[in-house]
Amino acid sequence: MFPIVAHEELAPNVHRMTVKASVVAEKAQPGQFVILITDEKGERIPFTISGWDAARGTVDFVYIEVGKTTRQLGALRPGDELAHFVGPLGKPAEVDHYGHVVAVASGYGAAAILPVLRALKEKENRITTILQAPDRERAFCAEELEQASDRLILALGSPGEEMTVSATRPLRKILANHPQNPVHRMVVMGSLCLMRVISEMTRPYSIKTMVHLTPLMVDGTGMCGACRCSIQGKNRFACVHGPEFDGHEVDGWDVLMARRCTYADESILQQSFQCRGCSQW
């Protein structure tokens, strides 16, 4: 069993959970994920690691209450235990010295991108971060992102029609100054929609844009193939070949998004998850 050592609400329905799992903490690297099961009848559900403390043997992640299991998680308190917790799964994010890195995050990504940014900072990159959130109250992790970046841009406002998203406005300005004020690399963590839109924006500029794909998973160790994504025409499994991929090499975003919603009607309780313009609704 894996005891919960801390559990805080970051915004309405958004929580950070810290779990004692020294085996996971010991090997965790930026961009990796864990799979947990709440109890013996629970599902295996993946979360990107948002931080860890190898000395204390703890791992944390941020989740949004959207379905049955995340609601169940929301009701747990420090001292309660998770039945299973396995990780760190997936390949770590690529981190090197690139120069100017622009990061875009929304939702769970605001927390999950933090270890990646800190590692990029250690490699002496200049980091501009765009945080997309509906409003200031739900712009969680803004302070931590500010500390981890050279500049933080808040992009507030609900996603509008046809998948245009508020993060695109500040990014458009940044790209307008490229290559005078060059962007050497992009990292995006957020909804599939956001990652797709950002990838399409940077494609004409040939700026390498890393996205962190979040397809449905079952085992998370390369056995089931539920998380397969088409990358340059080849099937790649997000759990062992990813979850980080070059956004310009991802093909079949429509299919990826549809697959992500296979069980949305059954396990996702929030109507707002049903994005407008998505082929599934």
């Binding site: 056995m223 397969r228 499994f237 549809a258």
Partner: peptide
């Protein structure tokens, strides 16, 4: 290990399972 696929168009459409996923 990793399930093999047919490598034909449309194989990643929704409701196309690998036997491993379906049985798991």
């Amino acid at each position: 290990g990793l399930p093999q696929f047919l490598r034909v168009p449309g194989e990643n459409l929704n409701m196309v399972y690998s036997a491993n996923e379906f049985l798991t």
